[in-house]
Design a protein around this nucleic acid. Structure first.
Lengths: 219, 219
DNA sequence: TAGATTGTTAATCGATTAACAATC
DNA sequence: TAGATTGTTAATCGATTAACAATC
């Protein structure tokens, strides 16, 4: 930390990773008409410690009130803001295979401000096909489209063999973030965020835990 | 730990979570014909500390040799075994919507021993449709199918509203593990493994990091 | 043998939990 | 006011990193 700069406490990714789950529970409580909740009550609901809940929230300043607890609606709004859900983000999908099309058709992202703007593929058979009202574009149009349409996020639903090259092209044209479903590590320049969804890794973890349980219980 | 029981050191999920990534790098090295690698070399490749690599591997016993390093092929095999990839696992998909069908068509799981055996949906329009050579079955057949076909893993690609009920039905019929894409927490009986893939949570983390970077750099 | 590199212990760091004073 | 519950400090726990003796 340089002398003279205002110290900004960095929030750990462990905390960030828990925020969406808090948001989900608070949204459900809100829908049920619950007005206030204590860290103790929430901890029982979510199966985490009340201490952790209070520590997590206090990373962002005091959201609660002593003797009362937390206002559900207010807390829900604030966590949404922290996660940037009060803004909209334009996104495109690269890769119009099964996964790419499935993600394009998944409507729920819209509700959180993630707007589906385009989808690309290098397979001429897929170009021109319709995914939720948007025609699949050829890869040649990728750069222009990203630059001209204020695209923040690119979803990579392509094989690992082309993912690194495509990510570089996106980076050079002002993308802010990559949601990476390709099974490869992307090394992006500073300031370009990467979030990986490695499905096969997740499945392997499941496999480990199945086998561990069977071994420990001699089945 | 009870007196008299042989102490089995529990491997932390943090370690397990890193194994698939080791496996991926080792597989690539293997394909390139690399025979041996030191923790130092691997650490540079993977951008983690050599210390962590050695600690991780030593959770499972000594895979290396002083002065030599690790044999790539051997290490690859051993990590595969730890992850249970030397066995096969039959899986079904519940939910034949966009995501369910996409996962059914994803061939790469087969290579790791995960065998696609059935797919179910309660929408009569989808029942009978073909997903990679398998006809979508109605939900009424779920229980019988799971029991009769030695199904280990159920992939939940259904809305949260029905996920808990379906998970309970699966649990009662001998499923070992649930790969949960529904946006809800499942509380399963001990011995049934759950691995969540909450796509919207992942997207929110990405959103947080975009906004954090923009704020810190006053864009 | 000398050099390299693991396996393993010790030190550090960060995250979680506990405790309690502040305060609504 | 008395009771409840946060915000926050302190204690604990676990994970990561550093160091180095063992050994190939």
């Amino acid at each position: 930390m340089e002398v003279g700069t205002l110290e900004v406490k960095e929030i750990s990714q462990a905390v960030i990773g828990r925020l969406p789950r808090y948001l989900r529970y608070l949204g459900e409580l809100k829908d049920e008409g619950v007005e206030r909740i204590s860290s103790q009550e929430l901890s029982e609901l979510m199966q985490v410690t009340a201490s952790q809940i209070r520590q997590d929230f206090n990373n962002f300043g005091g959201f609660g009130q002593q003797g009362y607890g937390y206002n559900v609606e207010y807390l829900y709004q604030e966590i949404g803001k922290i996660l940037g859900l009060d803004r909209t983000h334009n996104f495109i999908i690269v890769g119009a295979g099964n996964l790419g099309r499935a993600l394009g058709n998944y409507m729920n992202f819209e509700r959180r401000g993630f707007l589906f703007r385009g989808i690309f593929d290098n397979n001429p058979q897929l170009v021109g096909q319709n995914v939720r009202g948007i025609q699949v574009m050829p890869m040649e149009q990728l750069e222009d489209f990203v630059r001209d349409n204020d695209i923040d996020i690119a979803v990579l639903a392509i094989p690992k063999s082309s993912a690194v090259e495509v990510a570089d092209r996106l980076a050079q044209n002002g993308i802010r973030a990559i949601w990476n479903f390709a099974h490869v590590d992307l090394h992006m320049p500073e300031g370009i965020q990467v979030e990986n969804v490695h499905l096969s890794d997740s499945l392997m973890k499941l496999s480990y835990n199945i086998n561990r349980y069977m071994t420990e219980n001699e089945m």
